[in-house]
Protein backbone atom coordinates (compact mmCIF):
# COMPACT_ATOMS: atom_id res chain seq x y z
CA UNK A 1 0.00 0.00 0.00
CA UNK A 2 1.24 3.43 -0.82
CA UNK A 3 0.64 5.58 2.22
CA UNK A 4 2.82 8.53 1.28
CA UNK A 5 0.56 10.04 -1.27
CA UNK A 6 -2.52 9.98 0.89
CA UNK A 7 -0.83 11.18 4.08
CA UNK A 8 0.90 13.94 2.18
CA UNK A 9 -2.42 15.06 0.84
CA UNK A 10 -4.29 14.77 4.12
CA UNK A 11 -1.73 16.60 6.24
CA UNK A 12 -1.85 19.75 4.17
CA UNK A 13 -5.34 20.15 2.81
CA UNK A 14 -5.20 23.93 3.13
CA UNK A 15 -2.65 24.26 0.41
CA UNK A 16 -4.90 22.69 -2.18
CA UNK A 17 -7.36 24.99 -3.86
CA UNK A 18 -10.78 23.64 -2.87
CA UNK A 19 -13.65 23.53 -5.30
CA UNK A 20 -16.01 26.47 -4.88
CA UNK A 21 -19.15 25.56 -2.95
CA UNK A 22 -22.10 25.37 -5.27
CA UNK A 23 -24.72 27.13 -3.21
CA UNK A 24 -27.79 27.25 -5.46
CA UNK A 25 -29.01 23.65 -4.93
CA UNK A 26 -28.51 24.00 -1.17
CA UNK A 27 -30.89 26.93 -1.10
CA UNK A 28 -33.51 25.08 -3.08
CA UNK A 29 -34.95 23.08 -0.16
CA UNK A 30 -35.50 25.99 2.28
CA UNK A 31 -36.71 28.23 -0.54
CA UNK A 32 -39.31 25.68 -1.64
CA UNK A 33 -40.39 25.07 1.96
CA UNK A 34 -40.77 28.78 2.77
CA UNK A 35 -42.41 29.62 -0.54
CA UNK A 36 -45.11 27.08 0.22
CA UNK A 37 -46.01 28.64 3.57
CA UNK A 38 -48.35 31.34 2.17
CA UNK A 39 -49.82 28.85 -0.33
CA UNK A 40 -50.64 26.30 2.35
CA UNK A 41 -52.11 29.13 4.40
CA UNK A 42 -52.10 27.70 7.91
CA UNK A 43 -48.90 27.41 9.92
CA UNK A 44 -49.74 24.15 11.78
CA UNK A 45 -50.67 22.42 8.52
CA UNK A 46 -47.45 23.68 6.98
CA UNK A 47 -45.36 22.32 9.87
CA UNK A 48 -47.08 18.94 9.65
CA UNK A 49 -46.57 18.76 5.91
CA UNK A 50 -42.95 19.84 6.14
CA UNK A 51 -42.05 17.36 8.87
CA UNK A 52 -43.85 14.57 7.02
CA UNK A 53 -41.97 15.53 3.85
CA UNK A 54 -38.64 15.62 5.65
CA UNK A 55 -39.27 12.20 7.22
CA UNK A 56 -40.24 10.70 3.90
CA UNK A 57 -37.23 12.36 2.28
CA UNK A 58 -34.85 10.95 4.89
CA UNK A 59 -36.16 7.43 4.37
CA UNK A 60 -35.76 7.75 0.62
CA UNK A 61 -32.29 9.22 1.09
CA UNK A 62 -31.21 6.23 3.18
CA UNK A 63 -32.47 3.85 0.51
CA UNK A 64 -31.01 5.87 -2.36
CA UNK A 65 -27.61 6.79 -0.92
CA UNK A 66 -26.18 3.29 -1.30
CA UNK A 67 -27.39 3.06 -4.87
CA UNK A 68 -25.90 6.37 -5.95
CA UNK A 69 -22.56 5.65 -4.25
CA UNK A 70 -22.31 2.24 -5.88
CA UNK A 71 -23.09 3.82 -9.20
CA UNK A 72 -20.51 6.54 -8.74
CA UNK A 73 -17.77 4.15 -7.73
CA UNK A 74 -18.40 1.15 -9.91
CA UNK A 75 -20.53 2.47 -12.73
CA UNK A 76 -23.07 -0.19 -11.79
CA UNK A 77 -26.72 0.71 -11.53
CA UNK A 78 -28.34 -1.99 -9.49
CA UNK A 79 -31.97 -2.41 -10.57
CA UNK A 80 -32.24 -5.00 -7.81
CA UNK A 81 -31.71 -2.39 -5.10
CA UNK A 82 -35.44 -2.31 -4.34
CA UNK A 83 -35.37 -6.00 -3.53
CA UNK A 84 -32.76 -5.29 -0.83
CA UNK A 85 -35.19 -2.84 0.74
CA UNK A 86 -37.78 -5.60 0.94
CA UNK A 87 -35.21 -8.06 2.33
CA UNK A 88 -34.36 -5.56 5.07
CA UNK A 89 -37.97 -5.09 6.04
CA UNK A 90 -38.63 -8.83 6.11
CA UNK A 91 -35.49 -9.46 8.15
CA UNK A 92 -36.74 -6.90 10.68
CA UNK A 93 -39.85 -8.98 11.26
CA UNK A 94 -37.60 -11.80 12.48
CA UNK A 95 -36.62 -9.56 15.40
CA UNK A 96 -39.66 -7.36 15.95
CA UNK A 97 -42.40 -9.99 15.89
CA UNK A 98 -40.80 -12.36 18.48
CA UNK A 99 -39.90 -9.33 20.61
CA UNK A 100 -43.51 -8.23 20.83
CA UNK A 101 -43.11 -7.95 24.64
CA UNK A 102 -40.55 -5.23 24.08
CA UNK A 103 -42.45 -3.43 21.35
CA UNK A 104 -45.74 -3.41 23.23
CA UNK A 105 -44.10 -2.41 26.54
CA UNK A 106 -44.81 1.05 27.86
CA UNK A 107 -41.15 1.98 27.97
CA UNK A 108 -39.65 4.03 25.18
CA UNK A 109 -36.18 2.60 25.89
CA UNK A 110 -37.34 -0.99 25.35
CA UNK A 111 -39.23 0.05 22.20
CA UNK A 112 -36.22 1.80 20.76
CA UNK A 113 -33.83 -1.02 21.59
CA UNK A 114 -36.16 -3.48 19.82
CA UNK A 115 -36.10 -1.24 16.75
CA UNK A 116 -32.32 -0.88 17.02
CA UNK A 117 -31.91 -4.66 17.19
CA UNK A 118 -34.19 -5.04 14.17
CA UNK A 119 -32.11 -2.49 12.28
CA UNK A 120 -28.89 -4.35 13.08
CA UNK A 121 -30.43 -7.64 11.97
CA UNK A 122 -31.73 -6.11 8.77
CA UNK A 123 -28.43 -4.47 7.93
CA UNK A 124 -26.50 -7.68 8.52
CA UNK A 125 -28.97 -9.67 6.43
CA UNK A 126 -28.97 -7.24 3.51
CA UNK A 127 -25.21 -6.84 3.75
CA UNK A 128 -24.81 -10.58 3.28
CA UNK A 129 -27.38 -10.68 0.49
CA UNK A 130 -25.57 -7.77 -1.16
CA UNK A 131 -22.22 -9.54 -0.90
CA UNK A 132 -23.60 -12.70 -2.49
CA UNK A 133 -25.44 -10.65 -5.13
CA UNK A 134 -22.24 -8.81 -6.07
CA UNK A 135 -20.27 -12.02 -6.43
CA UNK A 136 -22.88 -14.08 -8.27
CA UNK A 137 -24.86 -11.58 -10.28
CA UNK A 138 -22.89 -8.42 -10.90
CA UNK A 139 -19.23 -9.42 -11.03
CA UNK A 140 -19.43 -11.18 -14.43
CA UNK A 141 -20.99 -8.17 -16.12
CA UNK A 142 -18.89 -5.21 -14.95
CA UNK A 143 -18.64 -2.62 -17.68
CA UNK A 144 -21.54 -3.98 -19.75
CA UNK A 145 -24.48 -1.74 -19.06
CA UNK A 146 -27.12 -3.55 -21.06
CA UNK A 147 -26.46 -6.91 -19.45
CA UNK A 148 -26.14 -5.24 -16.06
CA UNK A 149 -29.63 -3.80 -16.29
CA UNK A 150 -31.07 -7.10 -17.43
CA UNK A 151 -29.29 -9.26 -14.93
CA UNK A 152 -29.92 -7.08 -11.88
CA UNK A 153 -33.57 -6.95 -12.90
CA UNK A 154 -33.58 -10.75 -13.06
CA UNK A 155 -31.87 -10.89 -9.67
CA UNK A 156 -34.57 -8.63 -8.21
CA UNK A 157 -37.31 -10.91 -9.54
CA UNK A 158 -35.64 -13.97 -8.01
CA UNK A 159 -35.13 -12.27 -4.61
CA UNK A 160 -38.74 -11.08 -4.50
CA UNK A 161 -39.99 -14.55 -5.36
CA UNK A 162 -37.73 -16.14 -2.75
CA UNK A 163 -39.19 -13.78 -0.14
CA UNK A 164 -42.62 -15.07 -1.10
CA UNK A 165 -41.41 -18.67 -0.89
CA UNK A 166 -39.91 -18.20 2.58
CA UNK A 167 -42.49 -15.88 4.18
CA UNK A 168 -45.54 -16.85 2.17
CA UNK A 169 -47.36 -14.72 -0.37
CA UNK A 170 -49.57 -12.83 2.09
CA UNK A 171 -48.97 -9.36 3.49
CA UNK A 172 -47.20 -9.29 6.84
CA UNK A 173 -48.30 -6.69 9.39
CA UNK A 174 -45.43 -4.90 11.13
CA UNK A 175 -46.98 -2.78 13.88
CA UNK A 176 -45.13 0.26 15.22
CA UNK A 177 -43.80 -0.11 18.77
CA UNK A 178 -46.07 1.38 21.41
CA UNK A 179 -43.88 4.36 22.30
CA UNK A 180 -43.59 5.50 18.69
CA UNK A 181 -47.29 5.68 17.99
CA UNK A 182 -49.28 8.86 18.05
CA UNK A 183 -48.18 12.45 17.75
CA UNK A 184 -46.58 15.14 19.86
CA UNK A 185 -48.93 18.10 20.13
CA UNK A 186 -47.57 21.59 20.73
CA UNK A 187 -50.34 24.16 20.55
CA UNK A 188 -51.97 23.67 17.16
CA UNK A 189 -49.03 21.77 15.73
CA UNK A 190 -49.14 17.98 15.72
CA UNK A 191 -46.06 16.01 14.73
CA UNK A 192 -46.08 12.23 14.51
CA UNK A 193 -43.42 10.71 16.75
CA UNK A 194 -42.29 8.13 14.22
CA UNK A 195 -41.54 10.85 11.70
CA UNK A 196 -39.23 12.54 14.17
CA UNK A 197 -37.39 9.24 14.62
CA UNK A 198 -37.07 8.86 10.84
CA UNK A 199 -35.67 12.39 10.53
CA UNK A 200 -33.19 11.73 13.37
CA UNK A 201 -31.97 8.48 11.82
CA UNK A 202 -31.70 10.11 8.41
CA UNK A 203 -29.67 13.05 9.71
CA UNK A 204 -27.42 10.64 11.62
CA UNK A 205 -26.82 8.51 8.53
CA UNK A 206 -26.07 11.57 6.44
CA UNK A 207 -23.68 12.94 9.08
CA UNK A 208 -21.82 9.63 9.42
CA UNK A 209 -21.61 9.24 5.68
CA UNK A 210 -20.40 12.80 5.23
CA UNK A 211 -17.72 12.36 7.90
CA UNK A 212 -16.58 8.99 6.56
CA UNK A 213 -16.37 10.28 3.02
CA UNK A 214 -14.64 13.54 3.88
CA UNK A 215 -12.60 12.89 7.00
CA UNK A 216 -11.29 9.35 6.75
CA UNK A 217 -8.73 7.65 4.58
CA UNK A 218 -11.22 5.13 3.28
CA UNK A 219 -13.54 7.97 2.34
CA UNK A 220 -10.73 9.69 0.52
CA UNK A 221 -10.09 6.50 -1.43
CA UNK A 222 -13.77 6.15 -2.27
CA UNK A 223 -13.98 9.73 -3.48
CA UNK A 224 -10.80 9.26 -5.46
CA UNK A 225 -12.25 6.07 -6.92
CA UNK A 226 -15.40 7.91 -8.02
CA UNK A 227 -13.24 10.60 -9.58
CA UNK A 228 -10.72 8.34 -11.31
CA UNK A 229 -10.72 4.62 -10.54
CA UNK A 230 -7.79 3.47 -12.70
CA UNK A 231 -5.51 6.08 -11.10
CA UNK A 232 -6.35 4.86 -7.60
CA UNK A 233 -5.55 1.36 -8.75
CA UNK A 234 -2.30 2.51 -10.30
CA UNK A 235 -1.28 3.97 -6.94
CA UNK A 236 -1.42 0.49 -5.52
CA UNK A 237 -4.82 0.25 -3.85
CA UNK A 238 -7.02 -2.74 -4.43
CA UNK A 239 -10.02 -0.98 -5.79
CA UNK A 240 -11.93 -4.26 -6.11
CA UNK A 241 -12.00 -4.62 -2.33
CA UNK A 242 -13.23 -1.08 -2.07
CA UNK A 243 -15.97 -1.91 -4.58
CA UNK A 244 -17.15 -4.90 -2.60
CA UNK A 245 -17.03 -2.95 0.66
CA UNK A 246 -19.07 -0.10 -0.75
CA UNK A 247 -21.55 -2.48 -2.35
CA UNK A 248 -22.08 -4.31 0.94
CA UNK A 249 -22.41 -1.02 2.83
CA UNK A 250 -24.85 0.29 0.22
CA UNK A 251 -26.94 -2.87 0.50
CA UNK A 252 -26.94 -2.60 4.30
CA UNK A 253 -28.19 0.98 3.98
CA UNK A 254 -30.99 -0.28 1.75
CA UNK A 255 -31.83 -2.72 4.54
CA UNK A 256 -31.92 0.11 7.09
CA UNK A 257 -34.16 2.07 4.78
CA UNK A 258 -36.32 -1.03 4.42
CA UNK A 259 -36.87 -1.28 8.18
CA UNK A 260 -37.85 2.40 8.44
CA UNK A 261 -40.07 2.19 5.37
CA UNK A 262 -41.68 -1.04 6.58
CA UNK A 263 -42.46 0.45 9.99
CA UNK A 264 -43.87 3.52 8.26
CA UNK A 265 -46.23 1.44 6.12
CA UNK A 266 -46.83 -1.06 8.95
CA UNK A 267 -47.52 -3.65 6.24
CA UNK A 268 -44.99 -5.64 4.24
CA UNK A 269 -45.32 -7.12 0.78
CA UNK A 270 -42.61 -8.76 -1.28
CA UNK A 271 -43.09 -6.14 -3.98
CA UNK A 272 -42.67 -3.14 -1.64
CA UNK A 273 -39.12 -2.60 -2.90
CA UNK A 274 -40.22 -2.40 -6.49
CA UNK A 275 -42.74 0.27 -5.57
CA UNK A 276 -40.22 2.54 -3.85
CA UNK A 277 -37.39 2.00 -6.31
CA UNK A 278 -39.01 4.30 -8.85
CA UNK A 279 -38.91 7.13 -6.31
CA UNK A 280 -35.30 6.24 -5.52
CA UNK A 281 -34.34 6.45 -9.18
CA UNK A 282 -36.00 9.83 -9.57
CA UNK A 283 -34.11 11.06 -6.52
CA UNK A 284 -30.69 9.98 -7.71
CA UNK A 285 -31.32 11.41 -11.16
CA UNK A 286 -32.31 14.73 -9.59
CA UNK A 287 -29.28 14.67 -7.31
CA UNK A 288 -26.86 13.81 -10.06
CA UNK A 289 -25.84 10.17 -10.49
CA UNK A 290 -23.07 9.31 -8.05
CA UNK A 291 -23.38 12.34 -5.78
CA UNK A 292 -24.30 11.67 -2.14
CA UNK A 293 -24.96 15.31 -1.30
CA UNK A 294 -27.12 15.71 -4.38
CA UNK A 295 -28.98 12.57 -3.43
CA UNK A 296 -29.71 14.03 0.03
CA UNK A 297 -31.06 17.27 -1.40
CA UNK A 298 -32.92 15.45 -4.14
CA UNK A 299 -34.64 13.15 -1.64
CA UNK A 300 -35.76 16.05 0.58
CA UNK A 301 -36.90 18.08 -2.39
CA UNK A 302 -38.87 15.25 -3.98
CA UNK A 303 -40.62 14.28 -0.78
CA UNK A 304 -41.43 17.88 0.20
CA UNK A 305 -42.79 18.72 -3.24
CA UNK A 306 -44.84 15.50 -3.27
CA UNK A 307 -46.34 16.39 0.12
CA UNK A 308 -47.14 20.00 -0.74
CA UNK A 309 -48.58 18.99 -4.09
CA UNK A 310 -50.69 16.31 -2.44
CA UNK A 311 -52.13 18.95 -0.09
CA UNK A 312 -52.58 21.80 -2.57
CA UNK A 313 -53.52 20.07 -5.83
CA UNK A 314 -54.17 16.37 -5.18
CA UNK A 315 -54.65 15.66 -8.89
CA UNK A 316 -51.15 16.91 -9.64
CA UNK A 317 -49.50 14.90 -6.87
CA UNK A 318 -49.33 11.82 -9.08
CA UNK A 319 -47.11 13.54 -11.58
CA UNK A 320 -45.24 15.89 -9.23
CA UNK A 321 -42.11 13.70 -9.06
CA UNK A 322 -41.84 13.53 -12.82
CA UNK A 323 -42.50 17.24 -13.25
CA UNK A 324 -39.90 18.09 -10.61
CA UNK A 325 -37.39 15.82 -12.35
CA UNK A 326 -38.07 17.39 -15.74
CA UNK A 327 -37.73 20.87 -14.21
CA UNK A 328 -34.43 20.09 -12.50
CA UNK A 329 -33.02 18.42 -15.61
CA UNK A 330 -33.94 21.41 -17.74
CA UNK A 331 -32.06 23.61 -15.26
CA UNK A 332 -29.13 21.23 -14.75
CA UNK A 333 -29.09 18.40 -17.29
CA UNK A 334 -26.80 16.21 -15.20
CA UNK A 335 -28.67 16.70 -11.92
CA UNK A 336 -28.11 19.09 -8.99
CA UNK A 337 -24.50 18.09 -8.41
CA UNK A 338 -22.96 16.57 -11.48
CA UNK A 339 -20.15 14.18 -10.69
CA UNK A 340 -17.08 14.82 -12.83
CA UNK A 341 -16.53 12.70 -15.96
CA UNK A 342 -20.16 11.69 -16.18
Amino acid sequence: MNDDVVSAASTSPEELPGAALDIAPLLLVPVVAIAMLPLVGSFPAWITLTVAGLAMGMMIFIMASGLTLVFGLMDVLNFGHGAFVAVGAYAATLVLLPLSDWTSADSLALNLSAVALAIVAAMVATGIVGWVFERLIIRPVYGQHLRQILITMGGAIVIEQLLSVIWGPDQIPLPLPQGLRGAIVMGDVAIEKYRLLAVAVGVAVFAVMFLVLNRTRIGLLIRAGVENGPMVEALGYRIRRLFVGVFVAGSALAGLGGVLWGLYREMLTASMGGEIVVMVFIVIIIGGLGSVGGCFLGALLTALVANYAGFLVPKLALASDILLMVGILLWRPAGLYAVARR
Partner: peptide
Amino acid sequence: LLSLRVRALFFAMITLAVASAFSVL
Protein backbone atom coordinates in the same frame (compact mmCIF):
# COMPACT_ATOMS: atom_id res chain seq x y z
CA LEU B 1 -35.42 13.58 -26.71
CA LEU B 2 -35.25 14.17 -22.97
CA SER B 3 -33.23 11.12 -22.04
CA LEU B 4 -31.65 9.42 -25.05
CA ARG B 5 -29.01 12.11 -25.38
CA VAL B 6 -27.29 10.91 -22.27
CA ARG B 7 -26.88 7.18 -21.81
CA ALA B 8 -28.66 3.85 -21.86
CA LEU B 9 -28.91 3.76 -18.07
CA PHE B 10 -30.60 7.11 -17.92
CA PHE B 11 -33.18 6.08 -20.46
CA ALA B 12 -33.94 2.92 -18.50
CA MET B 13 -34.54 4.87 -15.30
CA ILE B 14 -36.63 7.61 -16.91
CA THR B 15 -38.84 5.13 -18.73
CA LEU B 16 -39.35 3.22 -15.50
CA ALA B 17 -40.42 6.41 -13.73
CA VAL B 18 -42.73 7.60 -16.51
CA ALA B 19 -44.33 4.18 -16.95
CA SER B 20 -45.05 3.81 -13.25
CA ALA B 21 -46.51 7.32 -13.08
CA PHE B 22 -48.70 6.49 -16.07
CA SER B 23 -49.98 3.29 -14.53
CA VAL B 24 -50.81 5.10 -11.26
CA LEU B 25 -52.57 7.76 -13.29
